[in-house]
């Protein structure tokens, strides 16, 4: 039972940075903009949050600093892709490389001092329930916040007028523009939101998950988040499930290795990727549904006619 609890909680925690970053990217892509620079924005978020902690700022401020760091990086992409209408693929890749470089530069002064990680909170009474308590009620606040953000984003996209406008812009910016919506401004907001979320993901890594500074500490999680959005066919619930699936398979393969099951570790290490791809391919069989959720104007530059 303890092993099961360990696998379950490990999965939830491992999925948290992916949930933040992928949900943020989902909103960006729903507005018709493709930002490939998640890895860079996450690293900026990680660096800023870590910086704030060693500067002695309280933890909530540090996490906010991380989010703002990610947003600042995304603004750079916004200016390139939305104002100057450069190729979004190129601008996004540039941001990924830029963010990695800038975070490494900032990190030169961090040393590798250990910091006090974000504390777990034991929710009173609930965390004392056998089995369920340690499974669900003993996480740090960011884990719960990621779930809250899932509900907020699902609600926003499909239950509010703002979400409808955002999705319209993603489908057909010309139409949205013709009926008077400020396409560029709304896309900017979406890109900034994506940056905030990627920044949160990075902050989670540097101050909560692995609370020490190492260069390029995201180790590819930004790219995995990007892939999750596509494989989840642009639907929030599937992003969430995909992140849990990926996190769960990662933990399971490590457990499998340590138990000494007779499969080479190289193959086990590939398992999370294989499983996520297979499951999401199977659930994406319906091409009509796919077309329905795919933002038709994705990565196409839009200049409002004057």
């Amino acid at each position: 039972m303890d092993l099961f609890i360990a696998i379950f909680t490990g999965t939830i925690i491992a999925a948290t940075p992916l949930i933040f970053a992928a949900l943020g990217e989902l909103v960006v892509e729903k507005s018709g903009v493709l930002n490939l620079g998640i890895e860079g924005m996450m690293l900026m978020g990680a660096a800023f949050a870590f910086w704030a902690v060693i500067a002695g700022l309280p933890m909530p401020v540090a996490i906010l600093a991380g989010a703002l760091g990610g947003a600042a990086a995304s603004l750079l992409f916004g200016v390139l892709a939305l104002t100057f209408l450069t190729n979004q693929y190129a601008a996004g890749l540039a941001l990924a490389i830029f963010g990695s470089g800038v975070s490494a530069f900032l990190g030169r002064n961090f040393g590798s001092a250990p910091i006090d990680a974000l504390k777990k909170i034991y929710i009173p009474y609930l965390s004392d329930i056998p089995v369920v308590g340690p499974m669900l009620f003993r996480f740090d606040p960011m884990v719960y916040f990621a779930i809250v953000m899932f509900f907020v984003i699902s609600w926003f996209l499909y239950r509010t007028k703002g979400g409808l406008v955002l999705r319209t812009i993603g489908e057909s910016p010309e139409t949205a523009h013709a009926i008077g919506y400020p396409v560029i401004r709304i896309r900017y907001l979406a890109v900034l939101f994506g940056g905030l979320m990627a920044g949160l993901a990075g902050a989670y890594l540097s101050v909560a998950y692995t609370p020490l500074w190492v260069e390029n500490m995201t180790a590819g999680k930004g790219w995995i988040s990007l892939a999750l959005v596509v494989f989840a066919t642009w639907r929030p619930l599937r992003v969430l499930l995909g992140a849990w699936l990926f996190g769960g398979m990662t933990i399971l393969q490590l457990q499998g290795q340590a138990l000494g099951i007779a499969v080479p570790s190289e193959l086990l290490s590939a398992l999370p990727y294989l499983a996520t791809i297979i499951v999401l391919v199977i659930i994406s069989q319906n091409r009509q549904m796919l077309a329905l959720h795919f933002p038709a104007s994705l990565a196409k530059p839009f200049r409002p006619a004057t």
Binding site: L3, A6, L205, T210, V214, A219, G220, I251, L254
Partner: peptide
């Protein structure tokens, strides 16, 4: 991959 290293260490502890 510090994240994976953490997961691996937790796995070993849980076993």
């Amino acid at each position: 991959d510090p994240g994976k290293e953490k997961e691996a260490a937790n796995t070993l502890l849980s076993q």
